[in-house]
Design a protein around this nucleic acid. Structure first.
Length: 439
RNA sequence: GGAGAGGUGGCAGAGUGGUCGAAUGCACCGCACUCGAAAUGCGGCGUGGGGGCAACUCCACCGGGGGUUCGAAUCCCUCCCUCUCCGCCA
């Protein structure tokens, strides 16, 4: 959530920063007008409250002195203020709510170094903080070459009898997959491998969070109120609980409504969890295979930092995510998302796109975002700095990686002409030394 | 599911209608003492918002929301959460 006081002081900068964002509901001046209205109502109310408090104090003193005549005289004078205050409170509540609702659907401001763009074609390839195309290419796994026409993951998976979309449809409908045998095991191995990597080599703390969450955390990480239709909910009494669309929700909200100590930052959390997305509005997109599912596993990284740390932490997080692909020997590229393609709460986002030879294209497998204090303000997550001042933390989140999509890329990149799949070396210890998945 | 207890400042914990934004302790910061530190003493120490150059001042906040009252941390309603006992259960 944007800070209205900051908007007041930087109105022009807000409009400039949001010029290339999609779906910006309000201009700075519209928000300021809402705030002006709120302030006017507040001032009127507070004047009435101050008058009432003064009377009440005198009444208390009169009663203490047993001066009942004086007390009832004062009572008569204060009587009319009751309605004024009641009405003022109603008006202020309405004005507060109007401003809050407006701010809740305002997207975050992109950082200055985010490329301005109209769509995903304006995303810019990123080669690291000091990198260029050549050094980046040299340091990353090469694109594999095939002596035959590589198949898509579902062709290979179905031929092996280890990927069953018909069975999944009978049980759950479209956008679900049943994995069996070697592929089920490899999916599990991938998740274990990733989370071990992040906990042992990158300093993340493993977390097993709840998968069902209340509305408040979903507001905190921006899923609500704008993206409610993307979520699944289960009933709970008269209320509901949301199924997490990403572990970002519970991991980031670990620090909601708290004050952290500066020396404890950055906090780094990781979790391997199922994720649930209704994929409303993506009907017809990626309907073949297991690329876009209602349920998938993902290893998520979340960092909680000071404002000074967040930019470096973003690079570090990207590197942690990249390391998974490097160890698995999967070719990829990194894109800096343009202003129009970034998520609602992000200040800046790197997408990692893995090479899928069966599709002959790069597909998103990770997205690492720095959110600044946008989520922290929604969650009221703060820390106490060296001077004892309480400030909002910065939050970052990234996938490292989406496990289902990693399985897809292993299948497509490690497929062999006979329809079997080689097991990447890094994964073999997690699969009892198995080197090949075949019929 | 049944019965009960409780949610107060960074933490612990008083406070049951009127100078309570809230005692006290711990933690923290400053000063004194000390060669230095500990101990001790003195002082400071919540958040958000309005007004003022400033000193300062006003408003709100004691789990959330609503109500009673001139006045609510304190009384009433409701929701959320935590704990204890019983039952059930992977």
């Amino acid at each position: 959530m944007l800070d209205i006081n900051w908007i007041r002081a930087n109105a022009a900068a807000v409009d400039t920063a949001l010029a290339h964002r999609k779906n910006v509901p309000f201009s700075a001046s519209e928000l300021i007008a809402l705030d002006d209205a709120r302030k006017a109502v507040t001032t009127r109310l507070e004047e009435a409250q101050a008058a009432r408090n003064a009377f009440s104090k005198q009444i208390g003193q009169a009663k203490a002195q047993k001066d009942e005549a004086r007390a009832s005289e004062l009572l008569a004078q204060v009587a009319h203020l009751k309605d004024v205050i009641q009405q003022g409170e109603d008006e202020r509540r309405a004005a507060d709510e109007k401003l809050r609702q407006a701010l809740l659907i305002m997207p975050n401001l992109p950082k200055d170094d985010v490329p301005a763009g109209a769509d995903e074609a304006d995303n810019v390839e990123y080669y690291g903080p000091n990198g260029n195309a050549a050094t980046a290419a040299k340091s990353r796994p090469a694109k594999p070459s095939f002596s035959f026409k590589p198949k898509e993951h579902f062709e290979t998976g179905e031929a092996l009898g280890m990927m069953d979309f018909e069975a999944a449809a009978k049980i759950s409908g479209a956008r679900f997959t049943v994995l069996k045998s070697g592929l089920a095991r490899m999916e599990r191995a991938l998740g274990q491998f990733m989370i071990d990597l992040h906990t042992t080599e990158h300093g993340y703390t493993e977390v097993q969070p709840p998968l069902l969450v209340r509305d408040e955390p979903l507001f905190g990480t921006n899923q609500l109120p704008k993206f409610e239709e993307d979520l699944f909910f289960v009933q709970r009494g008269d209320g509901r609980l949301g199924l997490i669309p990403t572990a970002e929700v519970p991991l980031t909200n670990l620090v909601r409504e708290s004050i952290q100590r500066e020396e404890d930052l950055p906090l780094r959390f990781t979790a391997l969890t199922p994720c649930f997305r209704s994929e409303a509005g993506s009907a017809g997109r990626d309907t073949r295979g297991m690329l876009r599912q209602h349920q998938f596993n993902k290893v998520e990284l979340v960092s909680i930092t000071t404002p000074e740390q967040s930019a470096d932490e973003h690079e570090r997080m990207l590197a942690s995510a990249e390391s998974v692909l490097r160890k698995l020997g999967l070719h990829y590229r990194v894109m800096t998302l343009s202003t129009s393609d970034m998520g609602f709460g992000a200040q800046k986002t790197y997408d990692i796109e893995v090479w899928l030879p069966g599709q002959d294209t790069y597909r998103e497998i990770s997205s690492c975002s720095v959110c600044g204090d946008f989520q922290a303000r929604r969650m009221d997550a703060r820390y106490r700095d060296k001077d004892g001042k309480v400030r909002h933390v910065h939050t970052l989140n990234g996938s490292a990686l989406a496990v289902g999509r990693t399985l897809i890329s292993v299948i497509e990149n490690y497929q062999q002409e006979d329809g079997s799949i080689a097991v990447p070396e890094a994964l073999q210890p997690y699969m009892g030394g198995l080197k090949v998945i075949s019929k």
